[in-house]
Amino acid sequence: MLKIIIILFMWCSVSEASEYFIVTYNVWFDYSTSEERVPKLLDAIEKPDVIAFQEVKRWFVNDLKRDGRFRNYNIVMKNGWNDSIRGGLLILTKSKILEQAYYDLPSTMGRGMLYSVINIDGTSVCIATSHLESMPEDTNIRIKQLKIIFEKTSSCNNLILLGDFNFGDGEPENEVIDSTYLDVWKTLKADKLGYTWDIKKNKLAEENSFPSEGSRRLDKIYVKGKHLMPVEIQIIGDIPFQSPAGKVLFPSDHFGLSAKFAIH
């Protein structure tokens, strides 16, 4: 009986809250296949409230601007040298942007964190995205990067942290993530592997993988704050297609993630 009451209470709480839809996607910087891939990638994104992209190049931003489905989004990004996008990071949001910043992280690859504060139905929510160091041996660098991200977002009462973290389940980096950060996939789908870097399914991931690297859950969404309740998460962009040249492609070498939150 107590279990039924708890479930009913949670259902009522969620039903009275507004729902928020977000996506994270590493779009792959390869320009040679972009003409075929990017339309499929954008089709996989179903007009969420917030989108965080990684490995963004200027040509990708131009493609977004030409697509009418994304004209009503506010853009958060930091320009770099020679018309580049700092850290390859881009956030699109339908909400009003209250604050935004870019922070460099210790890196040999020019990695950073892109940060914004938005207003959702009167609640201030921090959105932060990053693409951590890529090499398998870069564990210590990723740990340093995570600690700086946590420091820079420590004042956020409500935080959604998402992106390509470049470490999988069971790896040392997980030990520095404290219990106030909920891993949305593990919270909602602990019985599913959730590989977003799937070298068995995605030929692009197989071609770009390191020697002896296996499939891993590299792309993640974390949430912190009592006003944010994750209610749904799923993998997107995992359907292959055939290019005009007859090659089997995916929208990216990564799969994306979409999630829904109840905002109390």
Rank of each mutant, 00 (worst) to 15 (best):
E175Y: 11
G214Q: 11
G194D: 00
N202C: 02
S209M: 01
T187S: 10
I177C: 06
Y222S: 09
I221Y: 06
L218E: 08
E175W: 08
S215W: 08
E207K: 14
W185K: 09
L204K: 12
Y181G: 03
A205N: 09
H227R: 15
K220M: 12
H227N: 15
G214T: 13
F210D: 11
D198V: 03
G214F: 04
W185I: 07
I199K: 02
T187M: 01
R217I: 12
G225C: 07
L193C: 02
H227Q: 14
E207H: 11
F210K: 09
D183A: 07
R217F: 11
D183M: 00
I221A: 03
Y181F: 10
A205G: 04
P211T: 09
K201L: 13
K203T: 10
S212W: 05
N208H: 08
K220S: 12
A205Q: 06
G225S: 07
Y181E: 03
I221M: 03
T180R: 15
I177A: 03
G225H: 07
S179V: 09
I199C: 09
W197H: 06
Y195F: 15
V223N: 13
N208V: 05
N202G: 00
K201T: 14
T196Y: 02
G214D: 13
D198W: 01
K201P: 03
E175G: 04
L182R: 12
D198L: 05
Y181C: 06
L218N: 08
E206V: 00
V223L: 09
E206W: 10
S212H: 12
K201D: 09
V223C: 15
K200I: 01
A190I: 01
W197T: 09
H227W: 15
K203D: 04
D178K: 13
K203P: 02
G214R: 15
L182Y: 06
D191H: 12
L218P: 05
G225N: 05
Y195G: 04
S209T: 06
N208W: 10
F210N: 14
I177V: 14
G214I: 11
S215C: 06
V184E: 04
D183R: 03
I199P: 01
K224A: 06
K201W: 04
K186S: 01
K189V: 01
I221P: 10
T196L: 03
G194N: 00
Y195L: 05
D198K: 00
N208Q: 11
N208I: 01
R217H: 10
S215V: 08
E213V: 06
D219P: 12
K189E: 02
W185M: 02
E206M: 09
K186P: 00
L204P: 01
I221S: 06
S209E: 06
I199F: 02
K224L: 13
K186I: 03
E213C: 07
T196N: 07
N208M: 11
I177R: 11
P211I: 10
R216V: 02
R216D: 14
L193P: 04
L182N: 06
E213A: 13
A205F: 02
V176Q: 12
K186N: 04
K189W: 01
L188H: 07
G214S: 13
S212L: 05
D198P: 03
R217N: 07
T196D: 07
R216T: 10
K226D: 15
K224H: 11
